[in-house]
Design a protein around this nucleic acid. Structure first.
Lengths: 114, 114
DNA sequence: CCATCGTATACCCATAAGGGAATACGTCAA
DNA sequence: TTGACGTATTCCCTTATGGGTATACGATGG
């Protein structure tokens, strides 16, 4: 089996930097394709393709405006990612007590942990 | 160009469900490979391969313990994902005022938004 | 020193990615 | 109607995934 399709879920869709850029731009306001093309410095077809992926995972909504297509962000699917991260968030925020930390570090050294 | 390597960053590494499962299991405690194999119901080589990816993006640390290799979670890289999501979090939490919401919905209908 | 355990690597395969380039399609202006 | 504009789709190509299977490798127990 090959790698899961980028359209499988938000996780896969968002793994691509360009698509994250697009979302970042749409986070500010609704935009037509050409505007994204200009801002990204990418060829129009690739932008359309990225938008297709984002559409398929429902991260963006489209609205016809004459011959233009206005793309708008739909942050909802990102929530699933955020939810998954939830259980880890405390791990990097939480202040582990000094004892454990020191023991961890010592252990790593003597075991040549990489 | 092909898709970015899974080892490019945490985003790509975590896009694979199996790898998320592995992280979930390691979130509980440090574990040797075989234990993960049993818990995941995957073949040992695939588990080792997934662990390799996770190692390369520094999401896990290894420690030699005799003939076993104990894998431990390192949540740090997940932070970059969390940080990126930060700017969107308010969008799905924030209470948009009723007016905007209604206008949005009406607009979608008349434009046959998909 | 040898056999075995626990893991990692090497191969083979089918699948699809993302960029480039050409082209199809719908809408609007003249 | 025609032509230009804005966008989507198609095709080509290179690359690497992830699973399957076989095998290599280091450590341990006899």
């Amino acid at each position: 089996m090959a790698r899961a399709a980028t359209t499988t879920d938000a996780f896969n869709a968002v793994a691509e930097p360009r698509r994250r850029q697009i979302l970042d731009l749409l986070a500010q306001r609704e935009r037509p394709v050409n505007e994204l093309v200009d801002l990204l410095g990418l060829a129009q077809p690739q932008v359309s393709k990225h938008l297709r992926v984002l559409r398929e995972v429902d991260l963006v909504h489209v609205r016809d405006a004459g011959r233009q297509r206005m793309y708008r962000l739909n942050p909802e699917p990102l929530r699933s990612i955020h939810d998954w991260l939830g259980k880890y968030e405390r791990m990097w925020n939480e202040r582990f007590d000094a004892m454990d930390t020191v023991l961890e570090e010592l252990k790593e050294e003597e075991d040549h942990d990489d």
